[in-house]
Amino acid sequence: MASQGTKRSYEQMETDGERQNATEIRASVGKMIDGIGRFYIQMCTELKLSDYEGRLIQNSLTIERMVLSAFDERRNKYLEEHPSAGKDPKKTGGPIYKRVDRKWMRELVLYDKEEIRRIWRQANNGDDATAGLTHMMIWHSNLNDTTYQRTRALVRTGMDPRMCSLMQGSTLPRRSGAAGAAVKGVGTMVMELIRMIKRGINDRNFWRGENGRKTRSAYERMCNILKGKFQTAAQRAMMDQVRESRNPGNAEIEDLIFLARSALILRGSVAHKSCLPACVYGPAVASGYDFEKEGYSLVGIDPFKLLQNSQVYSLIRPNENPAHKSQLVWMACNSAAFEDLRVLSFIRGTKVSPRGKLSTRGVQIASNENMDAMESSTLELRSRYWAIRTRSGGNTNQQRASAGQISVQPAFSVQRNLPFDKPTIMAAFTGNTEGRTSDMRAEIIRMMEGAKPEEMSFQGRGVFELSDERAANPIVPSFDMSNEGSYFFGDNAEEYDN
């Protein structure tokens, strides 16, 4: 993207840094990872977990959730003011799984939030270390993106479920800051804005008074975040219109849905970061690795190297396929839920299948599930090659597409044709070009129609051997075009429920 120079890199967003050079960025990201790792080690000690239990991804998720809940100030305040039966607002906890007599047992633990905050700050040299908290939120978000298709949420806001490739980060909490905003897809931002506008339509006082002023500035800020994701002048001009509207209503909703559809071809720039579970960072720190000293990046080879040398386990339900569970977590670790499966298959070195073909449910185990038949197995999170994460949407291309997802959002900077089903997408653009945004709409449609099938995206960008740390010898991959490109292809993934 041309304006790259004016933006802070995501590592800076990730670490609240002012302008830093590459070495400083690597050190501050490393410091953040160190903090998460030290916190995780301490929690495993508190909970008396064995090494194996500490490497269980379900335990990692519970521990991450506990610290996120302990620092969720708004919710904590709300819980104190609106006490609900049987919930102690000062405590947080969740299921911890232990191996007892050759069987997995679930144990519900409860801790004072104050105590968890103390352990977290102690692991982070006394700081609140917001960057580390956001990092864990993005890992949870990436896992949700890989596990669930947001059909219901899309339909509720009037969008087409086939636009799911635009929904990265749709389950990120509001408090995820600049680093969170960077990884949100165009569809996620559109959905947040539509929800806001709908509230304004239904509630006369939404934009009024002292609160209304705050609401208005939040609305304009979200519009600017979305505008910054678009790469064409016409899309940005249309966002200006939406932002400046005196009284946002149905016309703005129409414009936003139009823009979301246009992003299936004229893709937005959305950041991709490899955020790993805390149970990967903990053992690495415990083994003596100093992330701050060595430096770390979320968008280069580092996460690949770390996963190459990590042992992570997962509980497996009786009829689940461990290899499929591994694929789910591998995609989440690489922030690749909406990437082209052919690119992923090449990088991973084994075939990556669409969601609907995987015999696996989510990673988390519900409290009512029976533990008797639970097994555990090693997650295979290694890769054959590594590639640089991208934040450009890439230019655009036609490809055989599917009944489910009709476009992709690249996660890796790797040369390819970008699949999208042009006739299906263009069919949504018939007729409606009147109104105050008509010239911009016409211009956007013209650009979409001009998108050429034979153009290559990320020209000359390749993948790298894991021994090639400096990215000196790019390998331009070859793809098996007979395979499906979309992950949520004609899909039956479970729906995400809060």
Rank of each mutant, 00 (worst) to 15 (best):
A2W: 10
A2M: 10
Q4P: 01
K7I: 06
R8H: 08
Y10R: 13
Y10F: 01
E11Q: 03
M13T: 12
M13Q: 14
M13D: 05
G17R: 03
E18A: 00
N21H: 05
A22Q: 08
E24N: 00
I25D: 15
I25P: 00
R26F: 02
R26S: 04
V29L: 02
G35M: 10
G37F: 14
G37S: 04
F39K: 07
F39A: 02
F39R: 08
Y40R: 13
I41L: 15
E46D: 06
E46Q: 06
E46H: 12
K48M: 09
L49Q: 01
G54P: 07
N59A: 12
I63Q: 01
E64L: 03
E64W: 07
M66P: 04
E73W: 14
R74P: 03
N76Y: 05
Y78L: 02
L79Q: 14
E80D: 04
H82Q: 07
A85N: 06
A85I: 15
A85P: 04
A85M: 05
K91S: 04
G93C: 11
G93V: 05
G94W: 10
P95F: 07
P95K: 07
I96N: 10
K98R: 01
K98G: 13
K98E: 14
R102N: 15
R106N: 05
E107V: 14
L108K: 07
V109A: 07
L110E: 10
K113F: 10
E115M: 11
E115I: 06
R117A: 12
I119S: 00
R121E: 09
R121P: 14
G126D: 03
D127T: 00
D127L: 04
A129V: 13
G132V: 04
L133S: 13
T134E: 10
S141I: 14
N142R: 04
T147P: 13
T151M: 13
T151P: 01
R152I: 06
A153E: 06
R156A: 13
R156H: 09
T157D: 14
D160E: 07
C164I: 00
S165Q: 06
L166V: 00
M167V: 04
M167A: 01
M167Q: 10
Q168A: 15
S170C: 15
S170P: 07
T171N: 04
T171Y: 07
R174S: 06
R174E: 10
R174Y: 07
G177A: 14
G177N: 05
G177T: 10
G185Q: 02
V186R: 14
M189N: 06
M189V: 07
L193Q: 06
I194S: 03
G200P: 15
G200D: 03
N202I: 15
N202Q: 01
D203S: 06
R204T: 08
R208N: 09
E210M: 12
G212F: 04
K214A: 12
T215W: 12
L226F: 15
K229P: 03
F230M: 10
Q231F: 12
R243E: 07
R243Y: 08
E244K: 12
S245M: 11
P248C: 01
I257Y: 15
F258P: 03
L259T: 07
A260C: 12
A263Q: 07
A263L: 09
A263M: 09
I265L: 02
R267P: 06
G268V: 15
G268M: 12
K273E: 05
L276K: 12
P277E: 10
A278M: 05
C279K: 12
V280Y: 12
V285F: 02
S287V: 10
Y289G: 05
F291A: 12
G295C: 10
I301M: 15
L307H: 13
Q308N: 14
Q308V: 00
S310P: 05
Q311V: 15
Y313N: 08
Y313M: 04
Y313R: 04
L315R: 07
I316W: 06
N319A: 03
N319M: 07
E320I: 08
N321R: 00
S326W: 08
W330F: 03
N334F: 02
S335G: 00
D340N: 04
L341R: 14
V343C: 12
V343A: 01
L344A: 13
L344V: 06
L344I: 04
G349D: 08
K351T: 02
R355A: 10
R355K: 08
L358F: 12
S359N: 01
E369V: 14
D372N: 05
D372Y: 06
M374F: 10
S376A: 00
S377W: 15
T390S: 08
S392D: 09
N395R: 02
Q398Y: 00
S402V: 03
A411D: 09
A411T: 03
S413D: 13
V414P: 10
Q415S: 14
L418D: 10
K422A: 00
T430S: 07
N432D: 06
G435F: 14
G435T: 08
G435C: 11
R436F: 10
T437I: 15
A442L: 00
A442D: 08
I444F: 09
R446Y: 07
M447W: 03
M447E: 04
M448N: 12
M456L: 13
Q459D: 09
G460A: 06
G460S: 03
G460L: 05
R461C: 12
R461D: 12
V463A: 14
F464M: 09
D468S: 05
P474V: 14
P477A: 06
M481G: 13
N483D: 15
E484C: 11
S486T: 03
F488H: 11
F488S: 06
G490H: 11
N492M: 12
D497L: 15
N498M: 04
